[in-house]
Design a protein around this nucleic acid. Structure first.
Lengths: 333, 333
DNA sequence: CCATAAAATGGTAGCGCTGCCAAAAAAACT
DNA sequence: AGTTTTTTTGGCAGCGCTACCATTTTATGG
């Protein structure tokens, strides 16, 4: 044992005693709730300072009705998307004295289910999830729980309570329409695990449908059953081109994958976009710093987090908010 | 209000009543602690299932002595470094039934202080921080608190309790020695806010000292007072080269910045490494997928998180663990 | 079959705080 | 000075659970 553990922490009762006032008075002063005189406040604060009192929020939450915890159950932390959402939510939650708790599902619905159960044990004020796809038991728990639910980053489906995001289907369609408009006709796809990342799956199917509807079916595709990464993007494009060399454009499941594809082209001297066009998804800053700005779709990730937090703070009524997205006509497609 | 809120949740007492056993029996069964018969367990579990009981961990934590919360107070979520650390810690903590809570400081010591105070109110089992540099009051609170403290990602200094990481000074030195060994003599630096990111500051000063000690002082530098980013790296190199065109190598504060520099060279046709060498820090996967693998230092970020969590789970005695790092002799320097 | 050990169970006092209510003190009117 | 109103204050019952102890039940042994 390194430092001084196992000492019993200072309690509110001790502060009350030291200040010569009642417990409820200390509680009122500390929460600035109810009325108390100036001299009482001073005495309490002096005692707090002197004893180094730190209120015990565990006890506070148990005693009062509502908790100030917000539970995030997100697919991944490596994916900058969720980091952005958390960042957006962070500031707003803090302002309203909420505390964020989180857990990572690795895109696994079963793990999500287990983690939601575990989170609900903390009686959070809200549970924030990614997307609409959850297990039956997850839905059941969430409905039974006495808390708000925000499903983020998607609006294609039926929300449980609140939802903030944008349409992945519309994004897939917009991407396809853009490539068609630019005249590409031999279009391929390089993606990652679609079963687990259902939002990427929605983009993909909508992308394909749009192509087909325009008489230009998807020429080929290369899909990894793993998480997305720059490396996977590069390998994926390599395999795809080996099989179907005459492609004139490739749609990637996201910007990371697209960057990998871009690197592959650079390494092999494939000229972009004349020999091969590249299109991504997310609109990361990184893509816009490339020698040729990446053509992609910019999604309001930080705004999603901010709004989600705001809705919880304001105890807004159930609703679905579509924040939209922006297509960036970069230089790679 | 969308869903069914404000219903009172099922309590342990209700489960006990429904199962026809005492409260303590239910508690024992649920925690698999103490002894109980098979038929009792079945009756309890049936009641739990039927009522949809979810244990209230707030109450549980208050009643028992030690909490199972681990508080992470980290500088940033956008920086993949911390995401990696959290990812590493996540699995281990979960195994041991710990729950992670986190807050982001944006590299601001004052915010760190406020957040540590706020975190301590949850009476966590441990507080995980980045580095050794904290405000006086932060140190004081941490010492007074009845919890473990892990300072991560640095070992150059005096630890409060536990520390897991690697030496940023040694990394700076190794980078300088590598560039010198390769024969570079006109070496520049492109970095970000060194006052706030003290670990980057340590690398920088150690890098400079090593150069000087070898009679090759730093030729020039370009330092932004903001967070690191690919874009800043690109702009930084642009400015640096405009001022000092004869540089033959540039040391970047991290891989993101270096990637920006790489993009800048690609865009301007600067040949790497013959015209200009580039060296980064972190060893992100991304850097190794570039057409030319980035020369950099790979840091054990995930391992840092894992070990930090393990030490907490095992209630290990105070100690400092240096996980070391690996210099990647890529193709850019 | 009784003594003794072991296993299973229930009762209940808190954990530290908040919310409610009643009481006391101060202020504002007659 | 005597009321009435308003502001401050303290007491105390929980919040839902766990830890401890006492008690009952079951198993073991001679």
């Amino acid at each position: 044992m390194g430092t001084s553990r196992n000492q019993t922490a200072v309690t509110l009762a001790q502060v009350a005693e030291a200040a010569g006032v009642g417990e409820s008075t200390v509680s009122r002063v500390l929460r600035n709730h109810g009325s108390y005189s100036g001299k009482t406040r001073d005495r309490v604060m002096t005692a707090v300072e002197r004893l180094g009192y730190v209120p015990n929020r565990i006890a506070g939450t148990l005693a009062s009705t509502g908790s100030r915890l917000v539970a995030f159950v997100i697919p991944s932390l490596s994916n900058i998307v969720f980091a952005d959402v958390l960042r957006g939510a962070g500031a707003t939650l803090e302002e309203h004295q909420f505390q964020a708790v989180f857990a990572v599902t690795d895109y696994d619905p079963a793990r999500e289910e287990a983690l939601v159960a575990s989170m609900l044990a903390w009686r959070p004020a809200a549970v924030m999830l990614a997307g609409y796809e959850h297990t039956e038991r997850t839905f059941k728990m969430l409905r039974a729980a006495n808390c708000r639910v925000v499903e983020m980053l998607d609006v294609d489906g039926t929300a449980l309570d609140l939802a903030v995001g944008f349409s992945n289907r519309a994004a897939g369609r917009a991407s396809a329409e853009f490539l068609l408009k630019r005249g590409y006709r031999r279009i391929g796809y390089v993606g990652h695990d679609l079963d687990r990342d259902t939002r990427a799956g929605k983009r993909y199917s909508s992308f394909c449908e749009t192509l087909s509807a325009n008489g230009v079916p998807l020429a080929d595709r290369e899909i990894y059953r793993e998480a997305s990464s720059v490396e996977r993007g590069r390998l994926g494009l390599d395999l795809l081109l080996a099989r179907t060399p005459d492609l004139d454009a490739v749609y990637f499941s996201n910007d990371d994958m697209a960057l990998g594809g871009y690197f592959h082209c650079l390494a092999l001297g494939i000229v972009i976009p004349s020999q091969l066009a590249i299109f991504g998804y997310n609109g990361l800053d990184l893509g816009q710093v490339m020698p040729q700005a990446l053509s992609t779709i910019r999604t309001p990730r930080v705004a999603t987090g901010q709004l989600a937090a705001k809705l919880i703070a304001d105890n807004a009524p159930s609703q679905v908010i579509d924040l939209g997205f922006e297509l960036i006509e970069g230089a790679t497609a």
